[in-house]
Write a protein that binds this DNA or RNA. Structure first.
Lengths: 145, 145
DNA sequence: CCTTGACCCTCCAGTGGCTGGAAGGATTAG
DNA sequence: CTAATCCTTCCAGCCACTGGAGGGTCAAGG
């Protein structure tokens, strides 16, 4: 298989597949003309990668997951730990986004959105921080990342 | 004020403040010795930026928000539109993450996590896609981004 | 045999929003 | 005077691609 075909079958852009080779996640053979020649095993690996990336695992996580996959003596605990840590990170990101969302949606709905210059969104962004103990009703969002 | 003081007062790293100057979000004066000299207005702008970034607005959004803030003839609608679009993007990101979260948490809880090699997480990542119409009970997650 | 078009190759640069570090000048406390 | 703490600029790196330039290869049609 050439790269175009695996790209279609794995559902990944050819550029991404070349990148995965560059970082050592796959090692396709080469035809004499220099074209990459993908085996079914390569395709399978790429599909695995597509799924793992789709679940938000980093490239480094993917590397580890693939090496565990290749290792018949692996322990399920190692796989589970990686996934559990990743799950926690996802939860943290969701929580951060929900904090933003709460503030933003309050701001958006408090703004008339007419053609006058007075706008609660700008007022909140420009506010001088309320003195401790009397928190503003708006902008309870944290500053995570 | 030197950069160290504004950094403390605005709650932003000095590096970030230099970066904001580089991309034209602030234009502090310079002392004869080359040090940046921040006015109260600069500090106010930086606090505004810190809040906007904390709500997840991009640098380009921040640039626009600041220019609207500076413009006494602005329309609240313009501000609102920016925030509303951003809110939608946040919602999309939350939805994507929740999709991942659902699959991941199912996988994690289905894995015994012992020292045996059999692991439902790897099995799911390595699966051959189920034929159409008979979706796997696992991995309903989309592949957004 | 030649052309056309669809492939494929490599290499380089850019994305966003910082962050780290090197190398050096300015200021301040002791 | 010295040492510590600031400040400066510039360059490189992060992540995971993505776009594009410039060129080679291959299969089909004339």
């Amino acid at each position: 298989m050439n790269i175009g075909e695996v790209a279609t079958r794995a559902g990944l852009p050819a550029k991404t597949i070349r990148y995965y080779e560059e970082v050592g996640l796959i090692r396709p053979r080469r035809d004499p003309n220099g074209y990459r020649a993908f085996s079914d095993a390569d395709l399978h690996r790429l599909a695995f990668l597509g799924r793992a990336r789709g679940l938000g695992f980093s490239i480094e996580d993917c590397r580890t997951l693939l090496s565990l996959y290749d290792d018949p003596g692996r322990a399920a605990a190692d796989v589970r730990r990686i996934a559990a840590v990743h799950l926690e990170q996802i939860d943290a990101r969701i929580a951060a986004l929900q904090g933003m969302r709460a503030t933003l949606s309050e701001l958006v709905s408090s703004c008339a959105g007419d053609n006058r210059p007075d706008c609660p969104i700008l007022r909140d962004l420009a506010r001088t921080d309320p003195p401790d103990g009397a928190p503003s009703p708006l902008s309870p969002a944290a500053r995570p990342r």
